[in-house]
């Protein structure tokens, strides 16, 4: 139908340099992809692909030498590096689990009839926009074992707080908690959007049937907020697995290697000049992220369709 007009417009503009070929006459030209494709291809796709090659080399500033799977052997033999893999998984699962639970509870609270709803929504959300490094340094001070505000307050009510960031068994979890503090606002917001989009008729029908608050939550909000749950889980898993700046700002992977994650190992190996090993870490991270996120999001989304 539109063919004739398209042909005419192309004819009148035949002096334009790009109008040479017949296929280029579409009003939606393929070359619109070009600027984005060049930048994305050169600075994202190419590095991602050549990472697989460079991870198999001993690589310094000057040259690289093919050494097969040596870097991966090193990575999985060195206890400090293997534990970073587990730390990454723990960190991602803890942060996304807490964000789902707290985000959902906060969203239910902030969509219910309470005073100062606007204030509460803003105050929960604002940390999302604040610099991660700023948040990290602030909480490093607040979590100081002797002088920090958290342990000072706990000692007032007679609890002796742990050395949040100095005790090897707490450091990783403390950072994860701060991550939740900073990120729960986004989860809450996504859940609020999901809950608000639930048609009011369901709640009215439930009230006629005599349902209480718990029934509403269990049988209406929870199942119908499922797309929001999928988004929150996917987003926070991706973020948690890649997480670097908060950990770097708070513990630098310490004490020892007890809060090292893959992303901080990548940086440390890069700083030390082991580029091949650093890149191998990157490939491991790539595999971990895709192996977890892709099947999970496919599974979660398929279930949604069956409902």
């Amino acid at each position: 139908m539109a063919t004739t007009t398209v042909t005419r417009s192309a004819e009148t503009r035949s002096s334009a340099p790009s109008a040479g070929r017949v296929r280029a006459k579409s009003p939606y030209p393929t070359w619109f992809y070009l600027p984005a494709a060049v930048i994305y291809g050169v600075l994202f796709i190419v590095p991602t692909l050549i990472a697989f090659y460079f991870s198999l080399t001993r690589w310094s500033i000057f040259d690289s030498k093919f050494i097969g799977f040596g870097n991966y052997v090193t990575f999985f033999k060195e206890p400090a590096l293997v534990t970073s893999l587990w730390h990454t998984l723990i960190y991602a699962v803890v942060t996304s689990g807490l964000k789902v639970v707290l985000g959902l509870l906060l969203a239910v609270l902030l969509t219910s009839q309470i005073v100062a709803r606007g204030y509460l929504r803003s105050v929960v959300f604002f940390p999302v926009l604040v610099s991660t490094i700023g948040v990290g340094l602030t909480f490093t001070v607040l979590m100081n074992p002797e002088k920090g505000l958290i342990n000072q307050s706990l000692s007032v009510i007679g609890i002796q707080g742990p050395g949040w960031l100095t005790d090897p068994s707490y450091a990783l979890l403390s950072v994860a908690l701060v991550d939740v503090w900073k990120g729960v606002g986004l989860a809450t917001l996504i859940y609020i959007a999901g809950i608000v989009s639930i048609p009011q008729e369901y709640f009215e029908a439930a009230r006629v049937d005599g349902a209480g608050a718990w029934d509403n939550f269990r049988h209406i909000v929870l199942p119908l907020a499922r797309p929001a749950t999928v988004t929150v889980i996917t987003l926070s898993l991706i973020g948690g697995l890649r997480s670097f700046d908060l950990i770097w700002a708070m513990t630098r992977g310490g004490p020892g290697f007890t809060s090292d994650v893959i992303a901080s190992v990548i940086y440390k190996q890069y700083q030390a000049g082991f580029y091949g090993l650093s890149t191998a870490g990157n490939v491991v991270l790539f595999v971990v992220v895709t192996a977890i996120v892709l099947p999970l999001s496919r599974f979660l989304n398929r279930k949604e369709v069956e409902l």
Binding site: V42, L43, P47, T48, A51, F54, N282, V289, V293
Partner: peptide, 23 residues
């Protein structure tokens, strides 16, 4: 293909040192 690449851009962590090499 384009849709797949967009999805990849959201999920895949950038490869740091190879990006420096390209730059």
């Amino acid at each position: 293909l384009v849709n797949a690449l967009v999805l990849a851009g959201l999920i895949i962590p950038p490869a740091v040192v190879p990006t420096i090499w390209v730059l």
